[in-house]
Design a protein around this nucleic acid. Structure first.
Lengths: 202, 202
DNA sequence: ACCTGAACACCGTTCAAGT
DNA sequence: ACCTGAACACCGTTCAAGT
């Protein structure tokens, strides 16, 4: 994981890892059956860093704090999101995380059906994933080219440019604040639906 | 793209593609500078299949139909989501999609700030991405092992098992229906916030 | 029995030799 | 000038030869 943090996940090969550990490449196969098992173990370790919420918390606070803790864990390791997505079969630690969130909804009185829908609604946000909304663009070399580039952007993507200049200008985009906003938006919606369902029943 | 659809993105190499085209591997480098450029072009082609909404539609219908069209395009190519996520710099077609959604919000009267937050809230759902909520597990071979496996799951992940049996039992999980539910949940929330903002201003 | 170097079957890409 | 086979620098993993 230290090596992946330093050189990136693409540069992490069985050979470079072995070299880092001052060990012959084949020695790694004493500990893992193959590279996939190594990557699985890395995901497990990151997800294992997620702090469990206290069980007596109300469902919303419990889920909220668990997801924010999840995000914090993933942010420490930039390669983690991509790895979680590519894993084909969920590991026990991954399932523990999903079980905990599911259990919180159920403990909060959500029906099985609504819990299922809620899990879908949270989606990859349960891992703290965020979507970049501004394109990362390398600026042109000389002044003239940079100006022409900006003009083209202004013409083709006026709303994105507007957003980038207005938000980027005033202190920049706080990714964490945006994450909490979106998470709360979803939790608000779920809470509302839950309350309505309960009212209809009673 | 046809080759990727058939053999999967992992099995798509410059060499296998060349073989498919009855061409020598190095001939591909007449058309693309490197493999990354090939993958970029594939993403562009998929995203280009997204149908633009009619410009006079109200913001919510416009965004909704565009995202559903995006989802339809991505579903036709199972390798597309993973590819979109790994692309480092956004291509014009990708930006066109983001520009269109941003423009719809603005045309609907959203402030630049709320539009920015809305883009974050929609997140990867703008590409039609969904999160699997049930673990895919290969069942054990013999009956006894399968039973023991189920017992262990029941003990460690009771809520997930509950969800899987109850939802899976009644016709299964309709991924598309779940996607629309989650999308509408977010759009509902955004519409509510938008209305409140407008009311406060006037 | 354990360890490990060489080898195998792949990659993406460079480059020089051929037309 | 264009095309292309061989070669280079990598992979993950197998396997047989060494201790």
């Amino acid at each position: 994981m230290a090596l992946a943090d330093e050189v990136g996940i693409d540069a992490l090969s069985m050979r470079t890892l072995a070299q880092r550990l001052d060990v012959v490449p084949m020695a790694l196969y004493k500990h893992v059956a193959n590279k996939d098992e190594l990557l699985d173990a890395m995901v497990d370790h990151v997800v294992g860093e997620i702090e469990p919420a206290s069980p007596d918390e109300n469902w919303r606070h419990g889920i909220r704090s668990r997801i924010l803790s999840s995000r914090a864990a993933l942010l420490r390791h930039p390669w983690a999101p991509g790895l979680i997505e590519t894993r084909t079969h969920a590991s026990p630690v991954v399932l523990d995380h999903m079980e905990a969130i599911t259990a919180s909804f159920r403990a909060g009185g959500f029906s099985v059906d609504l819990t299922h829908r809620a899990m879908h609604a949270i989606g990859s946000r349960m891992w703290g994933f965020t979507q970049e909304v501004f394109p990362t663009q390398e600026p042109a070399q000389d002044e003239a080219a940079r100006e022409q580039q900006f003009d083209e952007w202004m013409k083709r993507y006026p709303r994105i440019v507007e957003m980038a200049t207005e938000i980027g200008g005033s202190g920049g985009c706080d990714a964490h604040q945006e994450f909490e906003f979106a998470l709360d938006l979803i939790l608000d919606g779920l809470e509302r639906i839950h309350r309505e369902t309960v009212r209809d029943d009673g």
